[in-house]
């Protein structure tokens, strides 16, 4: 086997895994507060298209990522209003958000004035570490060969794990997701928590979409996310609502996206259609295994109040 091919494909699994991780980690935060937002794909497209536009206007990548995150959060705000304040069915609202975000991206992307299809980002991120470190065997390309967004995503995973499971504030969020009535009794604002965490989820999706369009593809095309938003949604379940597991799972899913090319180079041929479906098959299998084992189900199952609207009057 050719080592460098394998190594390169692992390194690129990290690259393509990064937007999945950003969006998936965001959705994980949202779901820990008891809100399920199926609109990840729509928020990635909607936030990403504005972030991409920004990148074609301005050379700061950080600014485009921030703009993409902000727009993603605004899309999520719509879902939060419908799901938390108006208490509508979150599945319906989330799917409507997918349609809205997809339409928004298509509309913005194809308007005659902007013609984003022909636009290009003004700048691309370089690897953070110097040549000498990138040339190190094994760890060079895998650990030291990335831009700062990848390292930031690792930091965000650590921060999310610490925040959710080691701080009082994180405990409050999880209590809102598990048992909002009790959280309400001890003075935690269920509504505010859910709004904030739903918007955090939107920001993750918007940032992931921007990274995908500006840094990975460097172009905007209609439907460019091609299901990555849904993979990010699946990631939350596959990772059992745990941030560190999400990090690993994102790269596994990313590797599956690339595996077709890798295997082709190595002389084997597994159709990409089959590989593209694998993350979803794996998620179903993980879900069934977890639900079949009560001990695992207690530890790695969804927050109890996920997708259940809360109102003080009917508790």
């Amino acid at each position: 086997m050719n080592d460098s091919v394998l190594l390169l494909s692992l390194a690129s699994a990290i690259v393509i895994g990064t937007p999945i991780l950003l969006a998936g980690l965001g959705e994980m935060m949202t779901e820990h507060s008891g809100v399920m937002n199926l609109g990840v794909e729509g928020m990635m497209l909607g936030g990403g298209v504005v972030g991409f536009w920004m990148s074609s206007q301005h050379s700061s990548v950080a600014l485009s990522l921030a703009v993409g995150a902000g727009v993603g959060a605004l899309f999520a705000l719509i879902h939060a209003y419908l799901a938390v304040t108006l208490r509508v069915n979150q599945i319906v609202s989330g799917l409507a958000l997918v349609i809205t975000g997809t339409g928004f991206a298509g509309f913005v992307g194809s308007s005659n004035d902007s013609a984003l299809i022909y636009a290009r980002p003004q700048s691309f991120l370089e690897p953070v570490f110097g040549e000498s470190m990138q040339d190190l065997p094994l760890v060079g390309p895998l650990v030291f060969g990335h831009d700062w967004v990848v390292y930031m995503s690792w930091g965000l995973v650590a921060a999310a794990a610490f925040w959710l499971f080691r701080t009082r504030a994180g405990l409050a969020v999880r209590s809102v997701g598990e048992d909002p009535a009790s959280a309400d009794t001890v003075g935690i604002s269920v509504g505010l928590t859910r709004y904030v965490y739903t918007m955090i989820g939107g920001a993750g999706a918007g940032m992931g979409g921007t990274y995908l369009m500006t840094q990975i593809f460097a172009t905007y095309q209609h439907g460019i996310t091609a299901g990555l938003g849904w993979i990010a949604f699946a990631l939350v379940t596959f990772a059992g609502w745990r941030p560190w597991r999400a990090l690993v799972a994102a790269y596994v899913f990313g590797a599956l996206r690339n595996l077709g090319f890798t295997l082709q180079i190595l002389g084997a041929s597994v159709p990409s259609d089959v590989l593209n479906a694998l993350p979803f098959v794996l998620t179903i299998v993980a879900l069934i295994i977890i639900s079949a084992r009560p001990a695992a189900a207690r530890k790695y199952s969804a927050p109890s109040a996920l997708a259940v609207p809360y109102s003080r009057e009917t508790r």
Partner: peptide, 17 residues
């Protein structure tokens, strides 16, 4: 742009819901 239809569809869905 025909995508306005998809956008409008989404907005209408959200409003009616």
């Amino acid at each position: 742009p025909s995508e306005i239809v998809t956008l409008l569809e989404g907005i209408l869905f959200l409003c009616i819901v």
